[in-house]
Amino acid sequence: MSEPVNKVKQTQQQVDDVTNTMHIAVGKMLDNQQKVSELTDKSENMKQGAQQFKKKTNEIKRLMWCRNIKLTLIIIAVVVLLLVVIIVPIVLKFT
């Protein structure tokens, strides 16, 4: 009567030992998370580096737009100046 109980207890204890061993091993394995946190930091730094890649294009668009606006303003100014040169003598003549 007592022998089967002892065998069952022994087996149960062995299973518990194995469980603890696996528990500890898995815990150690998961401690490799440092690598992942390093990856996170690296990629966060790289975000800023890649921002420049994109900002450049928007700057070009603004630059080109300003240049075109400037050119348009110059043309308008020239035209207005010509009109003034033509109209002012006529107005002065009739006064």
Binding site: L30, Q33, V36, L39, T40, S43, M46, A50
Partner: peptide
Amino acid sequence: LSFSSVPTMLYLNAQSISNGMN
């Protein structure tokens, strides 16, 4: 994807892996 988006994707994937580890 355009290259300016790739580090963002790297960061998001690193976060998801970190969460998986946790």
